[in-house]
Design a binder for these strands. Structure first.
Length: 508
RNA sequence: CGCGGGGUGGAGCAGCCAGGUAGCUCGCGAGGCUCAUAACCUCGAGGUCACAGGUUCAAAUCCUGUCCCCGCAACCA
């Protein structure tokens, strides 16, 4: 048994959750659930990034203090994730002075002690209207493209993290210890490294960034996002404090699940920070792509933004449908598309027809004229189940979620074909019980395979099948044992329960 | 010469890293079945795998070049 520590990026409390946030949480949740089901000890962490200038600005616009804004936003995210069935163990917030700040402050001190930080003055072209810096090439005729004013030259003091000199070390670390998944995403990172890295600004003067963690020993400066937000991955387990749980870092497989937009920060800045703080590197970086909408980038001006709430409303709040869509449609690491047509199509073809209908026809047949008694014995379908378990396992362990779902669905197809070719509705007596019991057993295996992806549906299936373990399936300590994976492996399972429609037709 | 991804039957995608009868979902056509949520099963039509060269007994798959589409381009989470 191994120990798995899995994290997602923490969400910025500036705006409402969108499909990108949801996709990432679902991906990580499927992995976390799989780790638990295969018997690993798991700690799954998500959270909120609640500092920064944008939070200050948004709060001001809404007539709130930054603190009030983040207090408002955190429950919005937590509520949504709860409905989506995200099974996190820890929810970190960067405004948490007890849980988060001590690690951050100690980390900063260590970076400074190790000589990785340096205070410099930073000169740039600042547009008062935009409240931001521009580089010369961003300007149009020397003017801000938005306000058409000439930016002022502003000089400010910043702490810099000396990342530039870490290039060679990072090349080695990324080749050996800290793996990027999928591999194609690693190319990008290596090409960045080949061109050499620059030092990064790690703080801002308090006058321009107030809402954040003060730099220890230099109260006139506020930490910029890197040292604050990235550090959540170790503050959540208390590293660098007196309540550290180092077993979750040093003696665990650490996986960061993040989007491709922030891959470079996680692949470059984060390991360099850890090195200077004397903390070992994480094990892997699982990078996912972005979601387009109807083939185009989601954008407010195109008006094709799809909100998670909208999708949930479309399926009466059944989050499993969204979980299934994202897991099935978006290959891990690639960009994917959200299309309503495809969403409905998949709902009908896979969930409603192939899966739901199969369960229904098996249960109805099995109970016709009897109490639904089972007699599971050796059967022609059992080698197929065994084979699909093997490919399912291999796929799940390699984060190839689509292939794993494919394994489960191919069992459904086998089931439907078997009923048809053997005309099971014409069978009577013992033969009927024997054949249909095999179909019920097949569905039991399907339900177990679906458990990480669509947990509530898997449990509903198990309840209809009247499985003894059905009520325990969603518990975090529920493990899929070898017996459960074996054909006829549940000895005290004697009969099936009442059939019930798993996925009703949409729009009615 | 900024970086990266992509161009495969009507639509959306997999296959490419480790060359060897081109696969999946939806749609379409014909038939079957009637247990089931008008669901299920079988068969079929439809592709010069962007284009041009090259390597090879053999290329969607490796190499070179061209065209087109899409992201990113650093303090914008």
């Amino acid at each position: 048994m191994s120990r798995q520590y899995i994290t997602t990026a923490i969400d910025y409390a500036n705006a409402s959750p969108h499909m990108g946030h949801v996709m990432e949480k679902i991906l990580a949740d499927v992995c976390a659930r799989w780790f638990r089901l295969r018997g690993d000890e798991v700690r799954f962490q998500i959270g909120m990034d609640e500092h920064g200038i944008k939070i200050q600005e948004t709060a001001a616009k809404q007539g709130l203090t930054p603190a009030a804004l983040v207090e408002k936003m955190a429950p919005v995210y937590r509520d949504l994730y709860g409905r989506l069935g995200i099974s996190e163990d820890v929810f970190v917030r960067t405004t948490d002075r007890d849980a988060h700040w001590p690690t951050v402050i100690e980390l900063w001190k260590r970076l400074e002690t190790s000589g990785a930080l340096e205070k410099r003055s930073y000169a740039g072209l600042y547009c008062v209207g935009c409240e931001r810096f521009y580089t010369a090439k961003d300007l149009v005729d020397g003017k801000c493209p938005l306000h058409l004013t000439v930016p002022q030259e502003v000089k400010e003091e910043n702490w810099f993290f000396l990342l530039g000199r870490e290039t060679a070390w990072l090349q080695e670390a990324l080749a050996k210890e800290y793996r990027i998944i999928p591999e194609q995403r690693a190319h990008e990172t290596f090409s960045l490294l080949d061109r050499g890295l620059e030092d990064v600004s790690f703080s801002r003067p308090r006058s321009s960034l107030e809402w954040g963690i003060p730099v220890p020993g230099d109260e006139g400066q506020t930490m910029y996002v890197w040292c604050d937000a990235l550090t959540n991955y170790i503050s959540g387990i208390g590293l660098l404090t007196d309540h550290a749980q180092p077993e979750w870092w040093d003696d665990a497989t650490v996986t960061h699940v993040i989007g491709k937009d922030i891959a470079r920060f996680h692949a470059l800045i984060w390991p360099a920070m850890l090195k200077h703080a004397g903390v070992t590197l994480p094990d892997r970086l699982l990078i996912h792509g972005f979601l387009t909408s109807e083939g185009q980038k989601m954008s407010k001006s195109i008006g094709n933004v799809v909100s998670p709430e909208e999708v949930l409303a479309h399926v009466d709040g059944n989050a499993d449908v969204l979980r299934f869509y994202l897991s099935h449609e978006i290959p891990v690491g690639n960009d994917g598309d959200f299309s309503w047509k495809r969403f409905d199509e998949l709902y009908d073809a896979k969930l409603r027809n192939q899966l739901g209908n199969l369960l229904n026809r098996v249960l109805v047949l099995l109970r016709k004229g009897t109490e639904g008694e089972l007699a599971i014995g050796p059967h022609a379908l059992s080698p197929d189940v065994e084979r699909q378990w093997t490919s399912y396992r291999t796929a799940m362990d390699a984060f190839e979620l689509q292939d794993a779902l494919q394994a489960a669905w191919s069992l459904c197809v086998s089931g439907n074909v078997f009923i048809d070719t053997h005309k099971l509705w014409t069978k009577k007596g013992e033969e009927k019980t024997k054949e249909l019991s095999a179909l019920a057993e097949l569905l039991r295996h399907v339900s177990l395979m679906l458990l990480p992806f669509i947990p509530r549906t898997a449990q509903r299936m198990a309840r209809q099948l009247h499985l003894p373990y059905a009520d325990r399936m969603l518990a975090k300590d529920f493990v899929i044992t070898d017996e459960m994976k074996a054909w006829g492996g549940v000895a005290d399972w004697k009969r099936v329960g009442e059939p019930e429609i798993l996925f009703p037709p949409l729009g009615k």
